[in-house]
Design a protein around this nucleic acid. Structure first.
Lengths: 238, 238
DNA sequence: TAGTGGTCTAGACCACACA
DNA sequence: GTGTGGTCTAGACCACTAA
């Protein structure tokens, strides 16, 4: 590495340089990276140091390594984004993928809470997306999604696909790589019950999600209301 | 390593050997391990290979490495076990630790579902523990815990501490290192409502946890009913 | 000062993919 | 066969800890 003050481990500096290249699009999703040896020569460090940086990024799902082929920038495929962030499953652990019904979108000024959660300035407009998601053709989830309009211009007009994060990446260059979720139990309101085809007051699982991009900035606020009479939210603790 | 057929990477074989030593108590919790160099000489591999095995175990919270001091077997301190498995927090993310009320224990034959979940043979007895847990002196969680009696003899008679997993380790040599949880929303029954001091029918968050030991065998089945009107279950996805 | 884990390097060989 | 990542080794120096 040509000239970096040595107060942080080399491999972390290399990691951060690679992270920047992914984040700013120099290395776009799906792209094959140069070989470890080539990167080592370019940066003037040993192959082992490059390897440690690449391994660490692969552990965070940002790169994919394939023996014999090379190292690729992770592409957020629809399946992948669902598998990574969709935690609803059948009791016992079987994973499943929901289908997405038609969505209603509107544009409006951000509320105070939305500005705070998404880190927006006053007066910013947001896009609100409402949709239901179904499993086995039964509506199970009622979803409300909030994103800043200036980050996703035109989103309100287009089709809303099942796997939104793949669209964020391919159309807007926004990589959702992490999220925090907060779960509560709450009773279904009249309106919510009607949309899910259940009785008013039925206990629903409410999931509040804040999704973050590669730079750690909040991208999307999503609230999901789930009918958990036949499905569960599955978590693995280690 | 003197004589191991080479069909798995060396560092994984070393990892498994170390795991066995932790699991069977050869290396008891809190113990200082021999230095990397000493382990490398003992096994006849390079220090780098030992390091890779130790790093991987440290990443799984089974070892603790302290620069300048050495590598220690992770001890399940009460704080640690709570921090690792207790996901209830205040909205916004602040972690908290509950206090534990008095517990009721009983011994009885295992039900079919309990036998299946815990992998028990017919006729096995289980210990059932019921208790409430409080935050800010308000009862928030109603907990039912099921363990096999032959694995925890005498547990039904003693004091039930707040951090049970620390007791499992210190008194019974059982290391809980992983768990699967399934979450649902459901209405409080008359009895549950009374114990939590809330109205019948209040939506509660039901958490079904199966906890596993180092060998991947199920150890405990725990069902927690949480009042989530002021608290949430927090998850980080990556 | 001596001993530990943490970082960095250099080079060897293996397993795999693909032309 | 050639090139890739995966594994393994050996040795150097650094940062931290404790006597």
């Amino acid at each position: 590495m040509t000239d970096i003050p040595g107060f942080r481990p080399l491999y972390q500096q290399v990691r951060e340089m690679f992270l920047r290249r992914i984040s700013d699009g120099t290395w776009e999703p799906g792209r094959l990276l140069p070989s470890e040896q080539a990167l080592a020569v370019e940066l003037g460090v040993s192959q082992g140091t490059v390897r440690k940086a690449l391994d660490s990024l692969a552990a965070d799902n940002l790169l994919e390594r394939r023996q014999g082929k090379g190292t690729y920038v992770a592409a957020v495929t629809p399946e992948r984004s669902l598998f990574q962030f969709f935690r609803i499953a059948r009791p016992g652990g079987e994973r499943l993928t929901p289908s997405s019904g038609t969505a209603k979108t509107r544009v409006r000024a951000a509320t105070g809470e939305e500005r705070q959660r998404l880190g927006l300035s006053p007066g910013t407009e947001v896009i609100e997306i409402e949709r239901t998601r179904a499993v086995d053709d039964k509506p199970i989830i009622l979803e409300t999604i909030i994103v800043a309009r200036d980050r996703f211009p035109g989103l309100e007009g287009g089709d809303i696909p099942n796997a939104l994060y793949a669209l964020y990446q391919s159309e807007y260059g926004v990589n959702v790589t992490a999220a925090n979720e907060e779960l509560r139990a709450q009773a279904a309101s009249t309106d919510e019950a009607a949309q899910l085809g259940i009785a008013e007051g039925t206990p629903l699982l409410a999931i509040d999600r804040l999704a973050y991009d590669l730079d750690g900035k909040p991208v999307e606020w999503r609230r999901s209301l789930c009918d958990t009479r036949e499905l569960v939210y599955a978590v693995t603790l280690r």
